[in-house]
Design a binder for these strands. Structure first.
Lengths: 350, 350
DNA sequence: TATTAGCACTCATTCATTAGGAGTGCTAAC
DNA sequence: GTTAGCACTCCTAATGAATGAGTGCTAATA
């Protein structure tokens, strides 16, 4: 459909605009060595590209700026595979060097390195933890009538919640309760726990232990909002580095939108590979001026989390995609090492 | 030293500037009903106040702006006691209505309500937890050679750390270890734990348990950075609402300074009552354009935390001081209820 | 004597005007 | 098919005048 020359010009225009954030003129383009054409020729081609909807003008006599369609085409067809600079590579890998055993830490670190390397905002969705299984319950009495309920999952996460058993808890009550809980619920996936607590087990518990209700409620409390996916933001302030956000008002709008929590579907990626949503392709209206690039990473065999990078539409797609590719890969394998077994990185199966 | 009229004019000038963020002129001031003087008279007084160093001009023919000395005098002598609006009062109190049992949650909520009510940035220093005592250790084995070490303090905090005992841990080893730890260390203040682990107990442990070293290290790891005071920030973005920060660059500088962590001495207040540090009175150079107001709150009988509010020098000192007074009081008593006993808010001693 | 009116002056801000530069579209020549 | 040339548009930065809020100072007033 497009001639080679048009492709070239479109590509260079987008590249240039991504780099400079300034409308690209024909004269400017003609100076590049890849372009052996005169400004006039380029003008003609640009006019055609504008008619086709790939480019736009900010005003009658301005240079050209990519339209959303232009970006889309660029992302789909014109992206040149990028190589990372050595230092980027080193930095990216550095987080997987140290022996980190908590998935959450690894994920946090990934988010922060990404936002650092891209100068955009990163959102990392932690994996769905509802499939994690309960490994141990315990209850530790504190002073007075208070006690703290603790739940450990097989992934090594520890949730806890302080509660107050107004009617008092005897040591034997606690022991009974803890034993019952461990007997009945260890090995159960988190997603099942609320149901189990509410129905089957409930009566059993209440028959044996005086204050079972309070304890159960408190265990449920400690799980609220914790079994669902978690979002880690990083580099929210990076948006201030982008020239299009030189206005405090815009920055504020963005930060407020982010802080008030976006629906996580925006950042989720259940598909294989990398997804790019440009401007209005994002469902959320507040992200109309942004592009979001997402990819999935694997946690163990069947769970996935998502990484999302939010930047202006004039985002460095090539670089971000390369970075995401590498990082999701690295993160996946780091997490695999973590969840399968601690052994693999030191010794063989024996 | 200053005449009554000078006091009045200084006060009104500061008030006005705090409200409007604009230099205050003589004509403008003379319009207020509290002022029965002509602009000319006010000009004369202002000229004197300027000579005395309380006011400044931004340029030769501009209105007056308070100097740091002016703010200082205002804070020390001219502050009129403020009454809170009913709604502010309600909002402020609301966080202590719900039954919250975790000190940390209470503290976080306090920080966020303060930043909401003031439109400034709040820093809340959690109490020194080194005096908290260990209530329970436990170790939960996960898959492979990994396990998670858990430590519960008498305040109900739960710290945990995943570790990898490369040489394997038998169930009996773990049990032995946990028993030893609990026997020897329960009741010990956190500040003592590292020493205990490193010296006295260490040999004992190592004699009885194969892999004691790994476990000990991991317990120490789980305490790193957790026994010291913690800072809770809230409302960092509020600074963008202040007209003096209409420039992205300034906002960025501020946010970066905050994020990169200020020495907490800046926000700490070990004295009784409220402290105000204006502009260059802050040790840290980056806070030269800000004022910081701090107060202490009590946690139980002998521990304290600090609340700090950071705003522009042109901060509403009266309001902030009032709010801080009330909140530190409320927070203190809420925490007292928490740490002494769970009973007090439901029933009498019996 | 303390206050105020009056006046000349300063400076920031606003607005219109201008000149320059970068861009465009179109046409005619190559 | 390509390009040089030209008239035209529009943004931007610079200039200067008008406006207004402010000042300091002096002389008149209460």
């Amino acid at each position: 459909m497009l001639t080679n020359r048009q492709l070239l010009i479109l590509q260079l225009t987008v590249n240039d605009f991504i780099e400079s954030a300034q409308p690209v003129g024909s004269r400017q383009l003609s100076k590049k060595e890849e372009v052996p054409f005169s400004p006039a020729t380029i003008r003609n081609e640009m006019a055609d590209l504008e008619e086709l909807g790939y480019l736009e003008k900010t005003h009658t006599s301005s240079g050209r700026v990519p339209s959303e369609k232009g970006y889309r085409f660029y992302v789909d067809h014109l992206l040149t595979p990028q190589k990372l600079k050595m230092e980027d590579n080193l930095q990216l890998r550095s987080i997987f060097q140290e022996r980190v055993l908590e998935a959450e830490v690894l994920i946090r670190n990934s988010a922060s390195i990404l936002s650092e390397l891209t100068n955009y905002t990163t959102v990392l969705l932690g994996p769905d933890t509802t499939a994690h299984k309960v490994k141990r319950f315990s209850i530790v009495p504190l002073s007075g009538t208070k006690a703290v309920a603790i739940m450990v999952t097989d992934s090594g996460r520890v949730e806890n919640h302080v509660f107050d058993a107004a009617d008092g808890l005897s040591a034997t009550d606690i022991e009974k309760m803890v034993n019952l809980l461990n007997e009945r619920l260890v090995g159960t996936p988190l997603s099942e726990i609320p149901r189990m607590l509410a129905t089957e087990s409930k009566m059993l518990f209440e028959r044996h232990v005086k204050n079972a209700g309070t304890i159960l409620t408190s265990i449920q409390d400690s799980m609220i909002g914790k079994t669902e996916e978690r979002m880690f933001y990083s580099g929210q302030m990076n948006m201030m580095k982008q020239p299009e956000f030189n206005d405090v008002q815009k920055v504020k709008t963005f930060l407020e939108a982010i802080e008030h929590g976006m629906p996580l579907t925006l950042f989720k990626n259940d598909l294989a590979g990398i997804q790019v949503r440009i401007g209005s392709e994002n469902k959320e209206q507040t992200l109309g001026d942004f592009s979001v690039i997402t990819t999935a990473y694997a946690v163990g065999t069947d769970m996935t989390g998502s990484i999302a990078i939010i930047g202006p539409k004039r985002m460095d797609y090539g670089r971000v995609i390369t970075l995401l590719d590498i990082l999701s890969e690295d993160l996946s394998s780091a997490l695999a090492r973590l969840t399968i077994d601690g052994r693999t990185d030191r010794r063989n199966e024996s």
